[in-house]
């Protein structure tokens, strides 16, 4: 059972990783919490659903979810963030909350509040590896997550756009002096973040095969915890922290603590913040937190 539970934990962790990364791109560069990410995830899921039930392939679904969520994220940046760029950090955070309320309402009116379920034919088979059974979709979720994290890491660390992103993260004014357009980079960061949330939404919706307009709420808060544990400025941190929290959750449940699961996760997050504020993998830490 333990091995099977570890597989469960890693799958859950993969999703946390993608969402945490989505939070940390905006957080790491702009220092704000984009509360609408949970809803971008949800919208991505619905888009993925629509594509899959139209009998198109999974890559198309992932692409559609990413594109749709990135586009909405761009709108959020233009209306909700850019005009409030100079305001205290809490103000744009609340404007993203406004978008999250609107997106939930739109989803409810379009698809209903009851869970939308994927027909049986899309559930996918299972592979038995000794005592452990892994779903094909589980493997896909984990695989796509690793690929996306690698792509993100490459973009941020190796490309000129990534250098520009890091420059803006370090110091917006200096970056501008060096000829980097802050507003363009901000928009890019929001869209990348949206695309990741959208991809996570599609993967989750297809793997768990059921989705509601409120699907992002709980998992969004957990992803914030994962982002903190992994460190807000290290891409690879999320890849480590996601499965770590996923496994911690799964083991808490397996060994009799399903009711204190959330207590454990958030307790862990606070402990990390207090004793290793730079996250598991280091990087710039909480002592440099921007003013709210």
């Amino acid at each position: 059972m333990l091995l099977q539970q570890l597989v469960n934990g890693v799958t859950l962790g993969a999703v946390y990783t993608l969402l945490a990364l989505s939070f940390s791109i905006v957080m790491g560069i702009l220092g704000i919490l984009n509360l609408a990410i949970a809803e971008l995830f949800m919208i991505g899921g619905y888009l993925g659903f629509a594509v899959i039930t139209a009998h198109l392939s999974l890559p198309v679904a992932v692409a559609a979810g990413m594109a749709g969520a990135a586009a909405i994220s761009a709108v959020i940046e233009k209306i909700g963030y850019e005009p409030l760029r100079d305001a205290p950090l809490v103000t744009p955070m609340l404007s993203t909350l406004g978008f999250s309320i609107i997106l939930q309402n739109i989803a409810t009116n379009m698809w209903g509040s009851d869970p939308l379920q994927l027909p049986d034919e899309f559930l996918g088979g299972r592979i038995a590896l000794g005592p452990v059974s892994i779903g094909e979709l589980q493997l896909i979720v984990i695989g796509v997550t690793i690929v996306l994290v690698a792509v993100m890491a490459y973009i941020v660390q190796r490309t000129s756009m990534g250098r520009a992103l890091r420059a803006v993260a370090e110091n917006r004014d200096v970056a501008r002096l060096l000829g980097v357009s802050g507003s363009r980079i901000t928009l890019t960061a929001f869209m990348m973040s949206g695309a990741l949330a959208g991809a996570a939404g599609v993967l989750i919706a297809i793997h768990y095969a059921a989705i509601t307009p409120y699907v992002g709420v709980e998992i969004g808060l957990k992803a914030i915890a994962v982002m903190v544990i992994g460190g807000t400025s290290r891409i690879w941190g999320a890849l480590l922290a996601g499965p770590l929290i996923g496994i911690a959750e799964v083991l808490t449940v397996a060994y009799g603590g399903s009711q204190i699961r959330d207590f454990v996760v958030y307790g862990f997050m606070i402990a990390i913040l207090l004793f290793r504020p730079q996250g598991l993998l280091g990087g710039s830490g909480a002592d440099q937190g921007q003013r709210v």
Binding site: N8, L12, I204, Y208, E218, I219, E249, V253
Partner: peptide
Amino acid sequence: GDLDVSAQ
């Protein structure tokens, strides 16, 4: 609101 109940 939980998505994942695989452990349970």
